[in-house]
Computed example of a mutant assay.
Amino acid sequence: MCASYGLDPRFTDAELLAEADEAVLDGLRSWAQNNAGETLRPTGKNLRNLNPLVTAADGTPLLEAAWWGYLVDGQPARFPSINTRSERLQDRPRGLRTRALVPATGWFEMQKPSRVWHEFGLGAGVLFGMAAVTQRGRTPDGEWTTCYSIVMRPAPTHLAELHDRVPLLIPSGFAIDWLTGDGTRELIDEALLAAASLDEQLRAEPKPDDKGDGMLF
């Protein structure tokens, strides 16, 4: 599963949107600079960060701050909600009703049993979008916000020995389709095919520092 990821403000915008929206990218760079290189982690009652998310309104990409994980009755969900399996969405496409892109330049996973952390991505500083499904939730303060869950799929063969699953990456040419398409079984099937086109670019590097510890809920 993906429990933490990174966003380098020096990113290139090659793999996020085919027609990069400057307002979105400028807002994303500003947010990343203010975040000062901190690892992005799930939001919870003990960790109240809100992370940048690309959504769409009337077909136009928008950047908003969103809660990673679902909120139920004003509290973080008691069930696992920061990740959603692609197979679950294929079986239950109702979960595809609202979707987003999670901007990142890398994500972190621990290889077991060696307990060595690796950073995965498309190359140093390359910005990409991880598929997410969203829903509205009420925070403990009573405010309504967008909540998101990152979609995970089986890892390609060359990465499977490091971790068995990877985020569903959305190529730039499929980004608008993912954000605005009908939420059907066909959409997740097409997204999986599109993601496979990036498999050869996916790589992993060992990280000597611990990047993925401690999900504080």
Rank of each mutant, 00 (worst) to 15 (best):
D210S: 14
D189W: 06
T180D: 09
M110Y: 15
A124N: 14
Q201L: 13
R136N: 13
T60F: 07
E186I: 12
V166K: 06
F79E: 03
F11D: 02
Y70C: 02
P103C: 07
R78W: 01
L71C: 11
M1N: 13
L101N: 02
S4A: 15
Q90I: 12
E87V: 11
S81G: 00
V24P: 05
F128C: 01
L179A: 04
S149V: 11
R78P: 10
G142R: 03
L202V: 11
D177M: 08
P103F: 07
I170P: 08
T139W: 01
A195Q: 00
E186D: 15
T134Q: 05
T55K: 01
E143G: 14
P9T: 11
V133L: 02
T134W: 02
A36P: 08
H158Q: 08
A32G: 14
W117C: 06
A195V: 11
R115C: 10
L127T: 05
P61L: 09
A191Y: 01
A14Y: 08
G123W: 12
Q33I: 12
R85K: 14
A3Y: 00
S30T: 12
C147E: 03
S86L: 15
Y148E: 05
A100P: 13
F174K: 11
I150W: 07
G173Q: 14
L159K: 07
T146K: 00
A36I: 15
R29P: 07
D13I: 13
L179G: 04
G27H: 15
E15F: 07
L40R: 01
V116D: 10
F120R: 09
M110I: 14
Q201A: 15
H118N: 08
V166Y: 03
